[in-house]
Design a protein around this nucleic acid. Structure first.
Length: 573
RNA sequence: CGGGGUGUAGCGCAGUCGGUUAGCGCGCAGCGUUUGGGACGCUGAGGCCGGAGGUUCGAAUCCUCUCACCCCGACCA
């Protein structure tokens, strides 16, 4: 490809709208262009990277036994109503009406469609297991797109669905996918780690995410330094320090005029925050829930949402709390009636707590569970923080930010049951098919690569996904010898099947080198009067500082060898 | 949806107590001189100043409404 003809211009200045590295670099390299919030065009260079990632993904899916197909993006809303997931996705569904006023949605994912499809094509256990996938555009009306390609509203996704006869089969399919995913990230040069995850709107009973550690990531990862435990903060469990255990004392009322927050009350009364109980009010699908948790611990709303099996969860307004008979600032689970009380396990890890008295400017000392109050539900609904104990080995937990580059779910049978996807087992009994689903966002994967593989000059593409393998950089093109040598080498490399971006522009060396660095092509080949004096060319890997001079006659062969070295050019190797 | 911010040329910005024909840098086109890490000179093209309404002799500038985009949060795969 001639750079002079390439669609897409590099930019020297950073566009004001971009503040994550990958967004800035992809824009400056002229690879993407935003059309609306979370909606992007992919220019030729970006599209080549996307295609290469897709090829790797496709290859690994096929190797794992997957069969590629294509399903509609336009989906009747009725299908979603059957599974109830229209509510789970809520406003994230892009919906539209056809001319007959029938409501459709632009597919945010394809469990419904594929389960329906499979229900018509699978009858017997002999048809299972089955791995079906597609690589296709998804639409999700995100509340807030962000970070360039990190979170968008229209994106290409590889989604594979597994269908098995039983849990064991699902386990095997799941295992195959985990292996395939590891291969994909490795081939893309991404050091992705597997962590435990919440299954969110997709539903199901088990889920893992593949993460790459990056500051610009949206997710918080909790990991242990002693063992291999790692989980999304939404899901992570931990061992919290116990508050000191004492003999339970009788409940005592104390005046706390003007002290409302945990911080104020604990300071005023001279007790540690871990010896207080905090009350937080939520509205779950319209019903008030009173949450009690130790004062030094925060509520994990994802855990709470899962516990309450609700589709909408929000903090209650003060007026809603008052309407339920709660005194804000001195709220208490003690003596509260007609309100669902949810307690975190932490209420059992201490004694003689300070809690609200449900009476203005008053708190209670020496509150003990379950002596003084009952909870309708008691469970782990706590947020895990850095520094707490690992639930597996007791080691110390740490927190870091990560980008989710893949998510896999054990769905089980809830979708197949609702959509009638059954099979006949060997004993002629009809059973629901056991499902799993496995997704990778292709564009986000590209952004994650840039996020992890760049320097202050620009992108550093790993060879396997680079838009071109070789950047043929000519200095002083107007010199006929340079022109001739470059054209010959270009032709030779193309003949060898290498992907070459030929910078045939008449520009100063500085511009050419800077553009080469920005675009991040893994191998740069420079031809100039200076190299030709010695009948040679210069080779430089984008990931390396040093350049190397090689004889013109051997150039093509050496270049080919470098290109075929898989880790060439990657900062991640 | 709550909080904050920004909309002026392809990109980055100035101009905003109302006052000629809306500027600067980069980029773009032409000519010339240069050039192994973003050269220089000259010439030139490119703007419904996000949109609508209002105030005024006069609005990029003041007022009202509105739209879009970004960031934080909520939310989210």
């Amino acid at each position: 490809m001639l750079l002079s003809k390439l669609f897409g211009k590099t930019q020297r200045e950073i566009p004001a709208e971009a503040d994550t590295i990958s967004h800035q670099l992809l824009l400056r390299a002229g690879m993407i262009r935003q059309l609306a919030a979370g909606i992007y065009s992919y220019l030729p260079l970006a599209w080549r990277v996307i295609s290469k990632i897709e090829s790797i993904v496709r290859d690994e899916m096929n190797r794992a036994g997957g069969q590629e197909l294509s399903m509609p993006m336009l989906q009747p809303i009725e299908l979603w109503q059957k599974t109830g997931r229209d509510l789970a996705f809520g406003k994230s569904l892009f919906t539209l009406f056809d001319r007959k006023e029938r409501q459709l949605t632009l597919g945010p994912t394809h469990e419904e469609v594929i389960t329906d499809l499979v229900s018509h094509n699978v009858q017997s256990y002999r048809d299972l297991p089955l791995l079906l996938y597609q690589i296709q555009t998804k639409f999700r009306d995100e509340p807030r797109p962000r970070g360039g390609l990190i979170r968008v509203r229209e994106f290409t996704m590889k989604d594979l669905y597994s269908f098995d006869a039983d849990e064991d089969g699902l386990g095997q399919s799941y295992g195959k996918m985990l292996d395939a995913y590891h291969n994909i990230y490795k081939r893309c040069g991404l050091p992705a780690i597997l962590i435990e995850a919440d299954s969110g709107a997709i539903g199901g009973k088990g889920s893992h995410e593949f993460m790459v550690i990056a500051e610009s990531g949206e997710d918080e990862i909790i990991y242990c330094d002693g063992c291999d435990y790692a989980a999304n903060a939404e899901k992570a469990e931990s061992i919290k320090d116990r508050a000191d255990s004492e003999q339970p004392l009788p409940v005592e009322e104390v005046a706390t005029p003007g002290y409302y927050t945990i911080e104020e009350v604990s300071t005023f009364l001279g007790v540690p925050r871990s010896q207080t109980l905090k009350a937080v009010f939520y509205v779950a699908d319209g019903k008030l829930a009173f949450v009690v948790i130790r004062g030094d611990i925060e509520v994990n709303e994802v855990k709470l949402k899962n516990l309450l099996h609700c589709t909408e969860l929000r903090m209650a307004g003060e007026d809603e709390a008052i309407a339920a008979g709660i005194i804000a600032g001195s709220a208490s689970p003690i003596g509260l009636e007609n309100v669902r009380i949810v307690a975190d396990e932490s209420v059992t890890s201490g004694t003689n707590f300070v809690a609200g008295a449900n009476k203005a400017d008053t708190h209670l000392k020496n509150v003990n569970y379950p002596r003084d109050f009952k909870a309708d539900i008691i469970a782990d609904i706590s947020l895990t923080c850095s520094g707490e104990g690992c639930p597996r080995c007791g080691g110390k937990l740490f927190a870091t930010q990560g980008i989710e580059v893949g998510h896999v779910f054990k769905l089980g049978t809830f979708l197949s049951e609702k959509l009638g996807a059954n099979y006949i087992d060997a004993g002629s009994v009809s059973r629901p098919i056991v499902m799993g689903c496995y997704g990778i966002g292709i564009g986000r994967l590209m952004a994650a690569i840039v996020e992890l593989s760049h320097d202050d000059k620009g992108i550093i593409w790993p060879m396997a996904v680079a838009p071109y393998q070789v950047y043929l950089c000519t200095l002083f093109m107007e010199n006929p010898e340079v022109l001739k040598a470059a054209e010959n080498l270009y032709a030779e490399l193309e003949r060898q099947g290498l992907e070459v971006l030929f910078d045939d522009r008449i520009e100063s060396p500085g511009i050419k080198f800077n553009d080469a660095d920005l675009l991040g092509i893994p191998l740069r080949v420079t031809i100039s009067p200076r190299t030709l004096e010695k009948d040679s060319i210069e080779l430089k890997l984008r990931s390396e500082k040093k350049a190397e001079i090689v004889p013109l006659g051997e150039a093509a062969e050496i270049i080919k060898k470098l290109v075929l070295t898989p880790q060439a050019g990657s900062q991640l190797a």
